[in-house]
Amino acid sequence: MSEHIVSPKIYLGIFAALMILTATTVYAATVDLNEHFPGLNVIVALVIATCKAILVILFFMHAYYSSKRTKLIIFSGFFWLAIMLALTLSDYGSRTWDLH
């Protein structure tokens, strides 16, 4: 497995992108997006966070350049998290009563 050296230019670019996304998410939180679509504020915040996370994983953590095996392992971590969240929320979302 030959090592891929990521150049500092890319790191700086990613850092800039992360800063812009951070500014965007802070700004988006101060605007009422929910009036356009219920829950849009949360969706925007999480989508931006996910974009940031993906940038960090792909470039800072070199996942973009790593083997399929490593990619599979990363994927399985998030996939299992998704199983846990989705199946648990499927219970809460489909209840015909409210426990609280």
């Binding site: 199983i83 199946l87 499927s90 809460y92 489909s94 209840r95 015909t96």
Partner: peptide, 22 residues
């Protein structure tokens, strides 16, 4: 094995639909 856990909870007040799926 990770998709079946809530079959331990059929009688707890979990959603009927979720129970069916599990």
């Amino acid at each position: 094995g990770f998709f079946v856990w809530a079959h331990h909870m059929f009688l707890t007040g979990e959603s009927t639909y979720a129970a069916l799926a599990f």
